[in-house]
Design a binder for these strands. Structure first.
Lengths: 175, 175
DNA sequence: CTTTATATTCAGTCAGTACTGAAATATATT
DNA sequence: AATATATTTCAGTACTGACTGAATATAAAG
């Protein structure tokens, strides 16, 4: 992966762009894309050169990817440097990312909603509307979290099974 | 909604924060939160004052929310100004947002992946690995889009039904 | 223990997005 | 038509988060 092919470049650039749209640092996403395509683990130095970013930037970004659990350091015989490789199982990769984003963003939002409802002065007519709306929003988040917890336990393949059941439910409604 | 209560402020600030984490402009998210809690439609001027942002900023942000389809202008008798109100159905609101993000981000990613695979020189040993990875990623996106298409047709309540079916599948596996 | 290679930290800089306010446009009222 | 009110556009500014590179830390080799 010394020089990138046109296709590799296109994928890496697009992945970086997607990252920014979903609140993930462009360089972090690009590094992930590079490692995902790479047939071998790459040392930080090579990543920096390939993507034309500072070595220190790679260092920080790699750590970020490690906290997501989708990149890890491996060692190569006769080389003191850390080499980094991406997880290859796409489904598992997204499962990890979703799990973390739930923990970092969805769960705290549920907490804020609960706190808001708890802090709301009771029975005041002025806030009746606010309470109603907060309850609806809280209900939504509770449902989403419940759905997630249900899914969590399922083996990867079962998701497709659910997908087919969705089709049946639809047909039953329609017919 | 002339003056915000502590709870309303907390909700609006948190919602703004969540927005930024998911690639949505903070002000846009805050305005949405304000309108969502508001018992009545608000004119742009009042939104600007309440959130302490420029009137023009509200104008741009409102337009953004309108393109998402979750805020619309309504008219109040005896007032020439536009008043803005948020959709109240939370499920429908998220459905709309997801629909648009799929259209803006997921679908284009599928296209890029297809294009990458099409552009990949065939049978070259050097790119065998890249092809394999791109195919795995493309397969994932195809599956997600298929899942989405299945869900799309379902009435809101049916999602909960699916949720319960998830539980059964899980138990069947376990027991 | 010293030298060399590698990785991380962090203060300062840079870039891109968000925001403002003035000007332009649009719409209503007299 | 003239005036008043409301909204949008846009050039310039401000701000946040990303990035760099020098300094520091860590660890292997001699």
């Amino acid at each position: 992966m010394a020089e990138l092919t046109a296709v590799q470049t296109q994928y890496i650039l697009h992945w970086g762009e997607m990252g920014t749209r979903w609140g993930i640092n462009r360089t972090v996403a690009q590094i992930h894309a590079l490692l995902y395509l790479s047939p071998r683990a790459l040392p930080a130095e090579e990543i920096a050169e390939t993507l034309s970013v500072a070595r220190s930037n790679v260092s920080t970004s790699i750590r970020e990817l490690e906290t997501w659990g989708i990149v890890r350091a491996v060692h190569v015989l006769g080389d003191r440097r850390e080499h980094y490789e991406s997880m290859k199982d796409v489904w598992e990769m997204f499962r990890l990312v979703i799990e973390q984003r739930k923990r970092r963003e969805i769960d705290p939002t549920r907490e804020v909603l609960r706190r808001c409802l708890a802090d709301l002065p009771p029975k005041e007519p002025g806030v009746a509307c606010t309470r109603e709306r907060l309850e609806a929003m809280a209900g939504f988040f509770e449902a989403v979290i419940e759905l997630y917890d249900q899914m969590k336990g399922l083996p990867t393949g079962t998701v497709r099974k659910l997908l087919r059941m969705g089709t049946k439910v639809k047909r039953a409604k329609a017919g």
